[in-house]
Design a protein around this nucleic acid. Structure first.
Lengths: 236, 236
DNA sequence: CCCCAATCCTGACAAATATCATATTCCCGC
DNA sequence: GCGGGAATATGATATTTGTCAGGATTGGGG
């Protein structure tokens, strides 16, 4: 199981201005800070499992997480990349159903857990918090619908380029200004794009040959951003 | 433009127990009933356009609506089918951005319009309403993520069978217990499945040959539901 | 440091699906 | 009821993408 340690204060959390709690009322933040439990998960560890019942929401203090569906034939589909300040597990909680996705740490991560009753309770009382929750849900829904359209209409090549840009937007670049600051396996990239691993590998090689990117193990350096954007063929 | 007529009362609306407003407080319902404008849209008419700014939410009193993205090359992707009691246009409103989808009437429909300020205002005050809003958003998000996984992993044949079941779940059957009670063009079905029109037509013909369905113009009769479910290959 | 299992890569091939072309049918307005 | 344009249907073909196979590389644990 994950190691848990003394709770860091929510009031000094580095994500307090960007997370869902940025507009929550002070007294509610106090309650959350009191009740939450913060744990460290190692790379590869599962935070929650598809099919399990939720007992609260998770708020990422520091780390990178993937949320994925396990498809019929067992193939994984990554549906979201989670970063510092993001919460996860809220969908299941709000609709009072089981998790539809599995959360797995992409690297060692420290994650706070907020018990269900408290979270729902505060959500009822705090209009700012619940409005922020709706804003997040709307934005996720918008992204999901766009992804549906692209999956249905765009070829793998364009989707791969788009995925590289998406990873960059989500986790940013390393100090060199080019390297994606997350290490994903080719299979994970394929499961993000929605294609076969071999196709992802092949296209990454092509991108490299065309000078758009540079590959070094799991490091991916974006060399020609303009060309990647062009390849992604975004219109909206 | 759509014909508008004297507002029907929200308190006697046939959808008042199933819509988002089912748990709203009485006084807020009064305000909405007061301010809303109900209009009739003819089949094919657009209720709102992708790219436009929202001025309120729409609540379907009676009718059938499709919400669709217009993809890069102009091909349409249908992302939602809307029925009596559903609301639409809330995503854009909540995130204060422009519509990302176009709403088009699939048949003559009467639709109520609730002004933005009032809706947002009541959402702030009425915890039950905002909780219901979150529940709806969660459920839509869940469906969208499932659709992403299926688009990425399931062949067209399975997705078409699934789409037929989805249409049945959404709009139900006619009195005969077999005919889908909505008329969609083959192209619309294809745009729901996420495939080429010809592929949808071809597979529908196969389904017919296999005795799963019966086709008569735009009427689709589901004859062998068990076999359709088997073909859809649902696991979750 | 070395080995073994994972992962990554590449080619050949097969399958799924889209595209193009062409009937055929349907349905709407006159 | 009768054109005519749109929607539907079907075949031929091209393209995209997935699958399978085998080899190269890598990285983590002993």
């Amino acid at each position: 199981m994950a190691t848990s340690f003394h709770n860091p204060s929510c009031h000094h959390c580095k994500d307090r201005f960007s997370s869902i709690f940025c507009k929550a009322e002070q007294c509610n933040l106090d309650q959350i800070a009191e009740a939450k439990v913060c744990s460290v998960y190692r790379k590869g560890q599962v935070i929650f499992h598809e099919g399990a019942y939720p007992f609260g929401v998770y708020c990422v203090n520091d780390g990178k997480i993937k949320l994925s569906h396990s498809g019929d034939d067992g193939r994984e589909q990554i549906i979201r990349l989670v970063r510092d300040g993001d919460i996860m597990g809220y969908k299941a909680l709000l609709s009072n159903e089981r998790y539809t996705a599995t959360a797995t740490a992409l690297e060692d991560s420290s994650i706070c857990f907020i018990p269900k009753d408290l979270f729902l309770n505060i959500l009822q009382k705090d209009a700012s918090l619940s409005f922020e929750m709706m804003r997040i849900l709307s934005s996720e829904l918008r992204k999901a619908e766009l992804k549906i359209t692209h999956l249905a209409q765009k070829p793998v090549r364009e989707r791969l380029a788009e995925t590289l840009l998406f990873i960059k937007e989500t986790y940013g670049l390393e100090a060199d200004g080019h390297t994606l600051s997350v290490r994903l396996s080719r299979e994970e990239i394929a499961n993000l794009v929605g294609t076969a691993t071999e196709s992802a590998i092949r296209l990454l090689s092509e991108f490299k040959k065309d000078g758009m990117i540079e590959l070094e193990g799991k490091k991916i350096r974006l060399l020609d951003l303009a060309e990647i954007i062009r390849t992604a063929n975004l219109q909206e």
